[in-house]
Amino acid sequence: MNKNAANAGSGATQAGRPARLSLADWIPKIVMAPTVVAAVVCIYGYMIWTAVLSFTNSRMLPSYKFVGLEQYERLFMNDRWIVALTNLGVFGGLFILICLFLGVMLAIFLDQKIRAEGAIRTIYLYPMAISFIVTGTAWKWLLNPTNGIEKMMIELGFEDFRFNWLSDPDMVVYCLVIAAVWQASGFVMALFLAGLRGVDGEMIKAAQLDGAGIITTYRRIILPSLKPVFFSALVILSHIAIKSFDLVAALTNGGPGYSSDLPANFMYAHAFTRSQIGLGAASAMVMLGCVLAILIPYLYSELRGERHE
């Protein structure tokens, strides 16, 4: 459509009809306008509003009495927030590391010219198509001590088998890791598989002639050449980790107690159910800071890379 508009524009120029030219020039802008407005208002507008609210004493309804950094002080004095942040550290760290490791291994194994690769690839990638709510619910059943894996093992005759992480406040965060890894590692695999397919076959032959075994070839040559893929996967996974809300909501609902809260759940609870809009806004701003801390270096390197080319 844009292309047609552009063609019409150039045709009008040749015919010397400036009225039609301006209309043709406007069409792309008109088409784009709703999206731009929606993005500016709904994303950046509300972002700014949240930032403003985080400096006010808003409770159930927004108020505009500015109290400086008081909400941030309260936030970091709040035990529940500290638990949520610690959980994010544990969950995010393990989730990213395990996903990367599994994804890379799956991709390498799938890249060995095996049979039925297409089918296997789809199977591994499929969890990504499911919402975190579904993943959370399914894993809630699986991990539930009274009717999940534990029950199955006991029925199989392992009477002493215990797998009750879901109800253990110290271990519950690892349940989140299991479910999230199950969902996202196939996606990482797809990213790396695409990367591996782009590796120059002659390079692998050269390594073979140089005397490198298969493990050395991957470790020293192929994987280092996939650095951009690592970087993209890292960015995508870390923002999935920081945004994680629905998984916790479905799998543990923050429990037992608030031991499996993540910052997003904290923010939701305070802003919308506990009438602490100011505190919720402050926690949202901290999360935004985390995302930006990952995104800005990424964008910087991407844009610099483009200029370099």
């Binding site: 002659e202 390079m203 032959k205 002639l209 020293r220 050449s225």
Partner: peptide, 28 residues
């Protein structure tokens, strides 16, 4: 291939992109 004691130069050069020139030469 590695036991045949031969070296090969490829059409695409097949240099290891993550290594410096010196590392490329000394890898074998």
């Amino acid at each position: 291939p590695k036991d045949r004691d031969i070296a090969m130069v490829f059409q695409s050069y097949a240099l290891y992109p993550n290594m410096t020139v010196a590392e490329n030469i000394s890898f074998g």
